[in-house]
């Protein structure tokens, strides 16, 4: 099916929203049930779009960005498969083919996501420079540039599918060598350490290092969840504060040398 210019512009706007939302994760424009429906709507394939969205949504139910880990990319999967569905012109009958295309694209999209998240380091360094000058306007603009790059992450592949044929784009996206994607995924597991190192350098003092050691051992050797660990951490902090106070206010009260030592910090 041939699309007119207005339909193409609408598709690219939806692709942009889906791309930005892929990282923001707020309004959910990147979820298949929304993105596929919208693309179906602007191209006059509403029903097929809704059905594709619903089917893909069932597959993508558990995809989520946890911590620093990046999930399979629902945004690219939904946008690309809907465009392929529309171009194929088979309507509802094309849903199965579109889904078969969507899954490898979701994994390829994950790779693009990691590239953008590395590029964004440049963005926050520009924000640092703007903060140095007290230029809040520039900080706003740079942050939005970050969002725009995330949008383009989906707009560019979408435009490529619209211009070229779908097979070429799919071969390009899924044809990335295994050593690159696997190696990047392994690197992605390690680079989060740099972020934690930055904060630890900021907070660490002789007084609080023991709590780091306790935290590490408990996390390593038990199955306690992060909420559980949070409660333990609060309890430890309260105990420490109470002990260091009672040593101070009591003075010679109970002759607690440890309390005095803690109080001297």
């Amino acid at each position: 099916m041939d699309l007119n210019v207005i339909q193409i512009i609408f598709i690219l706007i939806i692709a942009f929203l889906a791309g930005a939302e892929g990282v923001l994760d707020q309004f959910q424009f990147h979820q298949p049930i929304i993105a596929c429906t919208l693309i179906g709507l602007v191209t006059g394939n509403l029903e097929a779009g809704i059905i594709l969205g619903g089917t893909l949504q069932m597959i993508a139910l558990g995809w989520a960005n946890i911590g620093a880990a990046v999930a399979p990319d629902a945004a690219l999967a939904s946008v690309a498969s809907s465009i392929i569905l529309v171009l194929g012109g088979q309507g509802i009958n094309g849903v199965d083919t579109a889904i078969a295309v969507a899954i490898p694209l979701a994994v390829a999209g994950l790779m693009l996501s990691m590239v953008v998240r590395t590029l964004s380091i440049i963005v926050v360094h520009a924000m640092d420079a703007a903060a140095e000058k007290g230029n809040m306007r520039a900080m706003d603009v740079w942050h939005w540039i970050g969002i725009i790059i995330q949008g383009l992450r989906i707009v560019i592949p979408a435009a490529a599918i619209l211009l070229l044929d779908a097979a070429t784009v799919q071969n390009f996206l899924t044809g990335m060598p295994g050593w690159l994607t696997n190696g990047m995924a392994i690197g992605g597991g390690m680079v989060v350490a740099v972020g934690y190192a930055l904060v630890i350098n900021m907070m660490a003092s002789k007084e609080v290092w023991p709590f780091f050691m306790i935290g590490f051992v408990i996390a390593a050797l038990t199955e306690i969840t992060l909420i559980g660990l949070g409660v333990l951490g609060v309890a430890l902090a309260l105990i420490y504060l109470t002990l260091s106070k009672s040593g101070g206010s009591g003075g010679g009260n109970h002759g607690d040398p440890l309390g005095d030592i803690l109080n001297d910090y």
């Binding site: 989060v192 609080v208 660990l229 951490g233």
Partner: peptide, 20 residues
């Protein structure tokens, strides 16, 4: 002080669980 104790404690857990 309590926050930095909690912070260090949790950071250790994050390093252990999230760096792979």
């Amino acid at each position: 002080k309590g926050a930095s104790i909690l912070g260090m404690f949790i950071l250790a857990a994050l390093v252990q669980r999230w760096v792979s």
